[in-house]
Design a protein around this nucleic acid. Structure first.
Length: 751
DNA sequence: CTAGGGTTAG
């Protein structure tokens, strides 16, 4: 697909230096309607022809302004009415009229009609060609636009600066870097690089191609820079990591006395989002109000999103409540903004809360009657994934079908992930198979999903299918591949793919790749090879790798290496509670009491609170929270009684608590000693078992990691009660079926 | 020139 345009296009471009002014319609024709009221004039067209003044000329000068009006108002129905009238009066066939029709149908998003009219055009000129092209490019069919461009070159028509602008924008959205550069070469050759619209398009193209220096360079060459040129170069800086330069350009722009428009403001505000420059954003917002943009929907959306990005939820909500009119974009920004609070949150308790807030906003949007679009649906699906909210996810699935947005690749990919993350890998696989179109990310997702569910063979099989489908893997794809190999202990395959990644795809290994491979060796008990690999990374291993090694050392009884790894980890994450608990457990199990008290002292010095243990169980559309510290969860007496019964039963079947782990760090305050302290997920599971039918899988999110006792306990539960249990803890996804867990029982479990 | 979307190991 990517090679088609550049091959067909190579060397065929015919552009004469003297032909570059677009033939335009004579603007003076626009005066033929005294009151300029489109509706009224269109209405007149409904009258029989005989009611028109004698001598009315139904020619292009009569229709073209009407059609331009329809295009500006995006009014398809009016355009169709004019079209009918044109046919009735026999004016159809006029070149100007037909070109206008192509344009108006393109603007109204009706490309079938645009193409139909174009096909019947007797004499095509560059305006009609460009009109058709622009229609396709603006209606999310850039490939079709480029096809038209090539056809145009084949019949020997000359492109103009307008044509270049359109095709460059197609190259931008498709990231056809090669074709874009070829076009640039022709643009330079014929000396139209300094044209404002061409220069703007070039700047935007280079920005989308991730080449900021070229974008800036093309901007500089524009002779008469307009507001679009400035806005484009500012966005280019914002999108390509040099936000400060963007701000500097904004300052220069202000001093140059250019009139700002709403796009300038949204660009500069979204640049502020990246660097969390709330104060600058506020000043910009004030400036926009000063310049008369108060209440502007786009600008209000941007400033609200900036508040959310900077973590000021209350302020964002206040702004939202104050806005008189909101669009789906406003809702989407609210949802996405709250969803990203999940990543920003300092702990998983808060993250979980943010996720449900985002879902509540979605509910409000629904109640307000605003229709969800593909942005809404993909965001909400990924929120459901994070919350393991299957019931909500299924409702959203229904909506994607109803609205037809399921056909969108991104929505489809989000759906696949939702099912997988909610524990239903089979439904995920079905959704993946049913996708009409897949991108590299869709393939990567499904490979990772199979790996996460311990279905390594299917993951690797899918990877092969991906390659034969001609899709190029990226570094994240290989994370999925290595993780599949690691799960299944496929050392040779892993090393083979590692070489393939470096040699065939020229991808430099990243820390995550090494983590997967080290995980693989550790699972196989090959600690030495795991340690050897840490030395090949070329830089200091990260905390994930040290944790893996510690877990391996603990299970292998290689304490010396374990201590070494533990101290390294402590250096890397001196503020992390889980690290301390892990260390403490290691020293306790080795009965190294001096180290135990040393670590305890360090923990006290760090003064962090207790490790929070919360679990959330979702049943239908309700979420129940459980914590051993919280005495108010529902059915408390029944739950504890039932857990006691289960424990007795499991013990008779061989369940033994390792009892080595500390649950909490040493307490300063005496706690009432309860006869049985259960962990939050145990409470959640017992409650779920009591409240739901046998065939309902239990889905739980846990704030910290599952401890090995609970892990064993849950395996017993899944076997004796014949329940599927899915738990997403702070480290990974566990799916318990019939006494087995998809994590392969290798955990660096801590509390 | 146009805000808002899907992939990562433990």
């Amino acid at each position: 697909m990517a090679s088609l345009p550049s091959v067909a296009f190579n060397g065929n471009l015919k552009l004469e230096p003297d032909i570059r002014k677009t033939p335009t319609f004579d603007k003076s024709q626009n005066v033929s309607y005294p009151n300029g009221d489109l509706e009224k004039n269109i209405f007149n067209l409904k009258e029989p022809l005989s009611t028109f003044n004698e001598g009315t000329q139904f020619e292009s000068s009569f229709y073209v302004p009407l059609l331009q009006e329809c295009a500006a108002k995006r009014s398809l129905s009016n355009a169709q009415m004019v079209h009918a009238h044109i046919v009735k009066t026999g004016t159809y066939g006029d070149e100007f009229v037909m070109t206008s029709l192509v344009n108006v149908y393109g603007k109204c998003g009706h490309m079938e009609y645009a193409q139909m009219v174009f096909d019947r055009l007797p004499g095509r000129n560059v305006v009609s060609w460009t009109g058709l092209m622009t229609g396709y490019v603006h209606n999310s069919q850039p490939e079709a636009g480029i096809r038209v461009f090539i056809q145009m070159l084949e019949v020997g028509a000359y492109p103009t600066s307008y044509t270049f602008g359109t095709i460059l924008s197609a190259c931008s959205s498709l990231v056809y870097v090669k074709l874009g550069k070829q076009l640039h070469a022709y643009i330079v050759k014929y000396g139209i690089e300094s044209d404002t619209s061409v220069g703007n398009a070039l700047c935007s193209f280079y920005s989308k191609s991730k080449s900021l220096p070229s974008a800036v360079d093309t901007f500089r060459r524009i002779e008469e820079k307009n507001v679009v040129s400035w806005t484009t170069v500012i966005s280019a800086c914002g999108d390509n990591g040099d936000q400060m330069m963007g701000l500097r350009y904004f300052m220069i722009m202000l001093s140059e006395d250019i009139e700002l428009n709403e796009f300038t403001f949204t660009s500069i505000l979204s640049l502020c989002c990246v660097i969390h420059a709330l104060e600058v954003g506020r000043q910009i917002h004030s400036l926009s109000i000063k310049l008369g943009f108060q209440g502007n929907l786009l600008i209000d959306n941007s400033i609200m999103y900036l508040y959310l990005k900077c973590g000021f939820v209350k302020e964002a909500n206040k702004l939202f409540d104050e806005m008189d009119s909101v669009s789906s974009v406003t809702w989407n920004a609210m949802i996405a903004g709250h969803a990203q609070m999940m990543d920003l949150a300092e702990n998983r308790v808060y993250a979980h809360h943010s996720g449900y807030q985002a879902l509540n906003i979605f509910l409000k949007m629904h109640r307000s009657g605003t229709k969800p679009d593909l942005f809404t649906l993909s965001s909400v699906l990924s929120i459901c994934s994070a919350l393991i909210a299957l019931d909500q996810g299924e409702q959203v699935h229904a909506q994607t079908i109803k609205t037809g947005f399921l056909a969108d690749v991104i929505v489809g990919t989000a759906l696949v992930n939702m099912y997988s993350k909610c524990g239903n890998i089979d439904k995920a696989a079905t959704a993946f198979e049913e996708m009409h179109k897949r991108t590299m990310i869709s393939w990567t997702s499904m490979i990772s999903n199979f790996a996460q569910h311990g279905r390594s063979q299917e993951a690797l099989q899918l990877f092969k299918e991906m390659l034969s489908a001609g899709e190029k893997p990226n570094k994240i794809t290989f994370v999925g591949v290595f993780s599949a190999c690691s799960q299944a202990g496929l050392v040779d395959e892993a090393l083979e793919y590692f070489e393939m990644m470096k040699k065939t795809y020229k991808i430099k290994p990243i820390m995550e790749h090494y983590a997967c491979l080290i995980d693989m060796y550790v699972r196989l008990g090959r600690l030495e090879e795991a340690f050897d690999l840490t030395k090949k990374i070329g830089c200091e291993p990260n905390d994930v790798i040290w944790s893996l090694l510690i877990a391996g050392c603990r299970s292998q009884g290689n304490l010396e290496l374990g201590y070494y790894a533990a101290e390294q980890l402590l250096k890397l994450k001196p503020k992390d509670k889980e690290t301390y608990v892990m260390l403490l457990n290691m020293y306790i199990s080795a009965e190294r009491w001096q180290d135990v008290s040393r670590v305890r002292k360090m923990m006290k010095a760090e003064k962090f609170g207790k490790l929070q243990d919360w679990s959330w169980l979702s049943i239908k559309d309700k979420v129940y929270s459980f914590s051993p510290k919280n005495w108010s969860y529902p059915l408390k007496i029944e739950v504890e009684h039932y857990l006691g019964l289960l424990l007795d039963e499991f013990k008779s079947k061989g369940y033994q608590s390792q009892n080595q782990q500390v649950i909490n760090e040493e307490d300063d305050e005496a706690e009432p000693v309860s006869s049985a302290v259960y962990h939050s997920e145990q409470l959640a599971i017992a409650f779920g078992l009591l409240q739901t039918k046998k065939d309902v899988p239990l889905r739980i999110v846990k704030s910290s990691s599952i401890c090995s006792d609970c892990h064993t306990f849950i395996k017993f539960v899944s076997e004796t009660t014949d329940r599927k249990i899915v738990i997403c803890d702070s480290k990974r996804l566990h799916r318990f079926v019939n006494g087995h867990c998809s994590c392969g029982d290798f955990n660096n479990l801590i509390i």
